[in-house]
Amino acid sequence: MARRSPEPLLWLLFSAGGMAAALLVPVLLFLFGIAFPLGWLSAPDHTHLLSVLRHPATKVILFGLCLLCLFHWAHRFRYTLYDGLRLKNLSLVISLFCYGGAVAGSVAAGVVLFRI
């Protein structure tokens, strides 16, 4: 086959996503998902968060984080379904669902973040 496999690119996105998620997701999830809701730390007010979100650097970083995380999920989930549940014969449907979901989620992230 002369056609190049997309696998190296998908693996690169998976790998970059794994690194971004490992470095940035724990602190964000801990603060906004646990510490602020439970009152362990006082939650920042709306104006401060809005000004942080309006900064172009924040938008680009959060968009990159969302996109890479979603492609990381897509790659891992695809192989979890292949190996974990022995579904290799459904590979086309699974790939469409996983990478299609990652693309759709990235578009949604772009719409949400760049409209702020």
Binding site: A21, F32, L49, L70, G105
Partner: peptide, 28 residues
């Protein structure tokens, strides 16, 4: 397998983050 499943929760985090960002953008 648990490590592989972590991807699902990373995707959940993206959903959570975007819900929050959307709410902040909408107003106080």
């Amino acid at each position: 397998v648990l490590r592989e499943l972590s991807g699902v929760f990373i995707a959940w985090f993206v959903v959570f983050l975007l819900l929050m960002a959307g709410a902040i953008a909408e107003g106080s």
